[in-house]
Design a protein around this nucleic acid. Structure first.
Lengths: 208, 208
DNA sequence: TCTGATATTTACCAAATGGTCAGCAAGCCG
DNA sequence: CGGCTTGCTGACCATTTGGTAAATATCAGA
């Protein structure tokens, strides 16, 4: 626990500075990964000196952990909202795709932070993956399979459906550099085009 | 240029050691990214001392550059093979998906190396992206658009089609940790399931 | 087997990095 | 204002890191 955060009631300055640090850390970690990032870099980005930053957080790892911890909740929210009782399952899944795409476009740094962590073998969030994340996916995969058995959507492998939704949506955040470079001027309508494209793709796939 | 590699004819040892180094470097770089990897780590993995490694390569960056350079050719090959004269465009694109998926599964480290580089803003391969890669994609996107206009495939945004193929196939290499953790025992049939799933998805999308 | 080229090691360096500490400065509250 | 807590800094430290230099060991060919 950080010295400053150890007290029960945070002061105004504590709140402001910790948030500034986390914001800066998100920038840096999402770009360079954990090992590729330095405290100095984060401190500079946050407008603090290194010792000052370390007054608020005990270590580099502590910042990273807190960031990942906070991330996972937000990250799972779109899938959590998938309603098993929806009366139009195709629309419900498409809505999930839209939420996911929006999240990737609104929070690209979060997406990259997550991608970096997974790429490196998820050393710091493996428990979260095999725990809450897996549980949620298992649950929702069962829902999807149920819909398929009832003939409400076309028969698809539920896990690979989820993977393909993750892959296609997060691609726009994680590989943004590449996407922008290739689209050039077309980048301006990228989000709308992607939204249309993915809607079509998953609708065609899922319509019974 | 590395001292050892400067000579025109490489000796047996030079060939062996450079390959060992590149193999080790691929392992390390693909996991930790450029900044997160150390020469010591690579040297150890290759069974060499650090100075000995630096006898073959001038710097950490030199190894990384050579790796990326070699990578891009292999990486673009599947798309290059997309035949504009194919008489069944849907099948032709599906075949491309299969080549891509196979490549992701056979060369996951290469996929991750590339992913790491793009995630970090592609500082070392931006020219390759805006150059050869973009040119190839532009060319093939035009082919796909042609097919769509002729009614041979359903009308789709050609660039986003390509992105979605990249995203879905590379996902199995880049996010393997996550995929395996979630599938658990189901991982064994992952490749076949993914192949089936993607075939269905893209066939449904593209069939006119 | 001798010799020159190639290969490898030991010892080293400067810079960067994660982190600490003692002391000084600012806020806050009576 | 005075005093106590909170916030911040500069100097410092040990370790790691990328990289070098010189000395030594190994190899291939005459």
């Amino acid at each position: 626990m950080a010295r400053a955060a150890a007290s029960k009631t945070q002061t105004r300055i504590q709140r402001e500075k910790t948030e500034a640090i986390l914001a800066a850390a998100l920038d840096v970690f999402s770009t360079y990964g954990f090992r590729g990032s330095t405290i100095d870099q984060i401190a500079k980005q946050a407008g603090l000196s290194k010792p000052n930053l370390l007054y608020y957080f005990d270590s580099k790892e502590a910042i990273h952990s807190l960031l990942l911890e906070r991330l996972l909740d937000t990250w799972l929210e779109p899938l959590k909202k998938l309603d098993p009782a929806a009366n139009d399952p195709v629309k419900e899944i498409i809505a999930y795709v839209h939420r996911k795409l929006e999240m990737a476009c609104d929070y690209p740094r979060e997406s990259r932070l997550f991608a970096n962590e997974i790429l490196q073998g998820a050393p710091r969030i493996m428990e979260q993956i095999t725990g809450p994340l897996k549980d949620l996916v298992d649950e929702k995969a069962a829902v999807i399979e149920g819909w398929a058995k009832q003939g409400k959507i076309a028969p698809v492998h539920p896990y690979h459906l989820i993977f393909s939704i993750w892959a296609t949506t997060q691609h726009y955040a994680d590989f943004d550099t590449q996407v922008s470079a290739i689209l050039g001027a077309r980048s301006e309508t990228c989000f709308e085009d992607a939204c249309d494209y993915l809607t079509t793709m998953f609708t065609k796939l899922l319509r019974p």
